[in-house]
Simulated assay, not measured.
Amino acid sequence: MQTTGREPAAAQAVATHELTRTFGPVTALSRLDVTMPRGVVGLVGANGAGKSTLIKILLGLLRPTSGRAEVLGLDCGTDGPAIRRLVGYMPESECLPPDVSATELVVHLARMSGLPAEVARERTADTLRHVGLHEERYRPIGGYSTGMKQRVKLAQALVHDPRLVLLDEPTNGLDPAGRDEMLGLIQRISTDFGISVLVTSHLLGELERIADHLVVIDGGVLQRSTSTADATRLSGVILVEVTDRADELVARLRAIGARVAEGGGQSFTVEPTDDAVLDAVQGGAADLGVGLVRMQRRRHHLTEMFREQEVTDVRR
């Protein structure tokens, strides 16, 4: 798969302002204000959170009730055809014809995107090789496994060399090994070919592994938009385990202002705000005459962070 020259990139891949979409009495998106940078952006939310509705608006297939959205600097309300020339889309639903081969389907869709016949065939071969279907490319899709069908959907989203791909729940129906392989492919789309990716999932842990930026929505309302690096960096803690008297060591650390969370038994976590905290752990253990079993840097998974935030919000 080869990339071609492209026009200068917009500053943001996606931007929305007061974006609202209702279906009768149901509000799918509510005054959504968010910007999504280029790179890999994870759009996280439970089923029914509004992810698919947002994708359809970004493709220009669904008009917002109010507000506006932009993709690569183009207005989704008025520039739908132009957006679809620059964007690839992998739908969540089962939509592949069973009686044609992957090559036939992807070539056909490449031609529909405006590629000449010879270029479409060459690009199809490259893309199917990239997604791991080169050996199976002439078999009817009806005989494919779920993982292979997902790869066909990914290939058709990439074949016309888009600047941005929208992937709607690309790991649905896959076993753990298949999910890992799909996530690896998505990372390569960005790192190897410079294509921006917006990928939706209801599994935060999956997107934590591959996304540069995370956007969380719930009930059509923005909950959080943050870079993955900032989130994980801010959540870094040190897991400490001692042979005895952990409660006394915790008390010493709290007395100097360290933020400590008891973990049960002889272990606890401490936030390493500066080197003095780490020195206090080692010095305190020596003063108490206890052994340090381990001091291990640990990062909260983002699922834990959001769970903690939800508990805090409820207590307020």
Score class of each variant (00 low, 15 high):
A82G: 05
S113G: 12
Y138S: 10
T4D: 05
P170I: 10
F306V: 12
A10P: 07
D212F: 09
P25H: 14
E122I: 04
H301C: 02
T243Y: 00
G142Y: 12
F23S: 08
R163N: 10
S30A: 15
S66L: 07
R315H: 14
M295K: 01
S201E: 13
G291T: 10
G173M: 09
G50N: 13
V197G: 02
T22H: 13
D275R: 11
V71S: 10
N47R: 09
G142D: 13
V240G: 00
T191L: 13
L72R: 06
A15K: 04
E208N: 05
V119N: 04
R224T: 06
R307V: 14
R21D: 07
Q187D: 10
G73V: 08
V26C: 01
L109Q: 14
G178C: 11
L128A: 06
F268S: 00
V221Q: 09
D230G: 00
G265M: 06
S227G: 03
R139N: 08
L109C: 06
G48A: 15
R121T: 14
Q266M: 04
L59G: 11
V14G: 05
G219Y: 04
L128C: 03
A246C: 00
Q282W: 06
T103Y: 13
L253K: 02
D275Y: 09
T303V: 14
D180T: 09
R298K: 03
Q156F: 09
T78V: 09
A49H: 11
V106F: 14
L185E: 05
R123Q: 11
V293S: 02
G257V: 02
T65E: 05
T127F: 03
L62M: 15
S196R: 04
N47D: 15
A258P: 00
D247C: 01
G173Q: 06
V270K: 01
Y138C: 01
A280M: 08
G291N: 03
E104L: 08
V311E: 14
A13K: 01
T27F: 11
V293A: 08
Y89L: 06
V41E: 03
T146W: 03
R252C: 01
V215Y: 05
A11Y: 01
Q223I: 08
V221N: 02
G67R: 05
L72S: 04
T232C: 04
R163K: 12
S201C: 13
V71C: 08
L62T: 15
D212M: 07
M295L: 15
K51R: 09
A117V: 15
T269N: 00
T273D: 02
G219E: 05
R21S: 09
I55Y: 12
D33E: 13
L58R: 06
P97Y: 15
P8W: 05
V242R: 00
E206A: 07
G178Q: 09
R121M: 10
G194T: 02
R111L: 15
Q266T: 08
E241G: 01
A211Y: 04
L253C: 01
V152W: 14
V107T: 14
I57E: 12
G39P: 06
R38T: 07
L185Q: 08
R307N: 09
K51M: 11
L96Q: 06
G147S: 09
V281C: 02
R315P: 04
Q156W: 11
S235C: 04
H160Y: 03
D212Y: 10
M182N: 05
I189M: 04
G265A: 05
A246I: 06
G77T: 13
L133P: 00
S113F: 10
T27P: 01
S30W: 11
G48D: 12
L158W: 13
L292W: 03
A110F: 06
